[in-house]
Nucleic acid binder design. Structure first.
Lengths: 187, 187
DNA sequence: CGATTCATGTAACGGGTTACATGATTCG
DNA sequence: CGAATCATGTAACCCGTTACATGAATCG
């Protein structure tokens, strides 16, 4: 749904062809959602089929033709429908990267710390490059701000976790693995 | 990858069969990652095929047989490999729910506010139920804590956005749509 | 006694990605 | 002159979900 909103929302503002749409998303919004070329084209095809957008083919000289899409009035309606639905809804993201933290006792503590420090460096880099791109067009800076906040939250959390592990305070939460001694589910 | 880590990590601690694994994940970890029954079974099949886990079939009376899986030494190695990779890596989540915010000027301001207030109510509920389940087994409370932080960040952000929209301060960020007057990409 | 739970699984679908193809043009 | 860019697209694949099937046991 969000990909459709994104494409329709852009086409609402400018008539545009797939390649440029994709380029724009890749350079300006890649931090919020990713959308690869084939996916862009597929969604455009589908929306054209359903009458949400229409296109004219343009060719300059011998260069590859462009399909310049523009939104139809039906498309505008559908766009607003999707937008209302999306704005009033909330589906939490999956935080897959956290899962592994539940199993840290499988590795020696100092190794865990150094692995997490690598993670932290990666995270910092991502945060920095996101902050660099921080002047997005129009309301896209809203998205960037949003992302920066979550990345910062993630960094804070990671810092705390690493500190805890380093200072050994993790003992209080320490999971007693005791290699299969615990059998708390009854089979 | 994280799903494999999750299943292997659980099997490392207890020999277990698919149904119970799935039940455990559904009730204790559904906040961090979801994993439906067919997916659980498929991954278990695959890992068994590759020798990471092995199983014995057990049947009590006439009740449906259980495939009780246990991790092999190869599985333990692979688990550690995956765990190291996951701990030292960071791939930011996609925040799809934010996308629509970039297009709020397509709707009247007061409607946007009421739509976002609906979103906020949903978010609050999710946050509350997450906090209720806050006593996870072992290190799983780490995951819950992680999630609570991100949900809180999200709530703070939403509150600010709503306030901005309400107080009309959004003007400064206001995106001049001017229905297709802007043509800043050159075609 | 009908519905839910236990326990496994298959089939079909959905939606995204990677890899590949094409053919002119422009860059280094 | 070879490599990258422009512009479109297809095919194969991956991986997850929904929907459906089975058959005994247990709950209300």
């Amino acid at each position: 749904m969000e990909r459709k909103i994104l494409l329709l929302g852009l086409l609402r503002q400018f008539d545009m062809y797939g390649y440029k749409l994709n380029e724009f998303i890749d350079t300006h919004i890649e931090t919020s959602i990713q959308l690869k070329k084939p996916t862009t084209y597929r969604i455009l095809h589908k929306m054209a089929e359903e009458g949400w957008i229409e296109f004219k083919e343009v060719q300059e000289g011998n260069r590859p033709f462009k399909r310049i899409y523009s939104i139809t009035s039906q498309g505008e309606l559908e766009f607003q429908k999707l937008l209302r639905k999306s704005l009033s809804n909330y589906e939490p993201s999956e935080y897959r990267s956290a899962i592994s933290l539940a199993f840290v006792d499988a590795l020696p503590l100092d190794e865990v710390v150094s692995l997490l420090e690598k993670r932290r460096e990666l995270l910092k880099k991502i945060l920095q490059t996101t902050q660099k791109n921080a002047e997005g067009h129009g309301h896209f800076n809203l998205l960037i701000d949003h992302r920066i906040r979550h990345l910062s939250t993630e960094l804070e959390w990671l810092n705390e976790i690493i500190d805890h592990f380093k200072s050994g305070k993790m003992a209080e939460i320490k999971f007693k693995v005791n290699n299969k001694k615990i059998k708390e589910f009854k089979q």
